[in-house]
């Protein structure tokens, strides 16, 4: 059935009379031999690495045993908890600082600038120690309704939370500012023209759109925070890293316990990455014509429909 055009017909078809479309193109795809070679090389390298680890002095049975040891799981829970809380402080305070920094009010924008200058300009380790030793400066704290010794208020948990959260806010402020600046000024004008005031415009119109730009780098910050939280051992907050360190030095299985900690950190960041994917989808609302299916939806679709041969231009072959 090769296509010698039927000359008995009038040249040039009427639009829309292509009732039977021509046969779909079936062609031999380009072969990528280089990819096969490199895939084999990568697999070999991974196999060698795995073999080295398995045959090292690490006692894998100890690793398995301590993976669910009470003190380790508690440490992992505390790591997650301090990370979530610090990020919450960072996000809320960061958004506030970003709005302040972009405000017409010179006092607000300068205060925000100064805050970001200080907290970005000093190491978080130093900040943690400063918070922990706050009693050097204020030996008692008086909030009017509540008064106590500073050392009773600034527990290891509070010091860790303040150190991580306030430091994070400075970084989140810059991320949020970039997000806010990415929103078309026409959006603000449209909201103002409808009689919305500045605060409502920011909350209802600008921030929801800025979130699309803010979330991916915030996910990055969250994952960073999961790992940075290992620093709070200096203020004696027993999170995952410190727990692994203590348990490891007690039973002299130091390396095994660090492997345990590594597994936990990877687990936490992986779970979080999945969450981030769905959060991004939520804020992509209205941005594209249709949302691509989630991996879960894709899996379901593949299980419930017969695999059909792809058309040219389709995504799967």
């Amino acid at each position: 059935m090769t296509g010698v055009p039927d000359l008995s017909k009038e040249p040039g078809r009427e639009p829309g009379d292509d009732q039977i479309p021509p046969e779909s193109i079936v062609a031999i795809p380009v072969r990528h031999y280089g990819r096969w070679v490199s895939a084999v090389a990568v697999c070999a390298l991974l196999a060698w690495l795995a073999w080295s680890f398995v045959n090292s002095d690490i006692h894998w049975d100890v690793v398995g045993e301590y993976l669910t040891y009470d003190r380790i799981t508690e440490g992992a829970a505390k790591t997650l908890w301090i990370t979530v809380l610090s990020m919450a402080i960072g996000l809320v305070l960061g958004l506030l600082l970003a709005v302040m920094r972009l405000s017409d009010n010179a006092v607000l924008s300068n205060v925000a600038w100064g805050y970001i200058w200080f907290f970005r300009g000093t190491p978080v380790l130093v900040q943690l120690v400063l918070w922990y030793n706050l009693s050097f400066i204020f030996d008692t704290m008086n909030f009017g309704f509540y008064k106590d010794e500073t050392n009773d208020i600034i527990t290891p948990f509070v010091a860790a939370l303040l150190g991580l959260g306030l430091n994070e806010a400075a970084y989140m402020a810059e991320i949020a500012r970039a997000g806010i600046l990415s929103v078309d000024p026409g959006q603000t004008e449209a909201a103002h023209a409808l009689g919305m005031n500045g605060a409502k415009t920011t909350r209802r119109i600008v921030l929801p759109q800025a979130m699309r730009v803010i979330i991916p780098p915030s996910g990055n910050e969250f994952i960073n925070m999961l790992k940075t939280s290992s620093l709070v051992s200096v203020v004696h907050y027993e999170e995952l890293f410190w727990a692994a360190d203590i348990v490891g030095s007690r039973n002299t299985r130091v390396m095994e316990l660090f492997v345990v900690a590594t597994v936990w950190y990877l687990l936490l960041t992986t779970v979080f990455s999945v969450g981030q994917y769905y959060l991004e989808r939520h804020y992509a609302k209205g941005s594209g014509r249709t949302q691509p299916p989630t991996p879960l939806q894709r899996l379901r679709a593949q299980l419930t429909s017969f695999r059909t041969k792809s058309q040219v231009g389709g995504t799967t072959v």
Partner: peptide, 10 residues
């Protein structure tokens, strides 16, 4: 407006 300026997230 010339560029509509609808709120894209709504």
């Amino acid at each position: 407006f010339q560029r509509f300026n609808l709120f894209p997230h709504m």
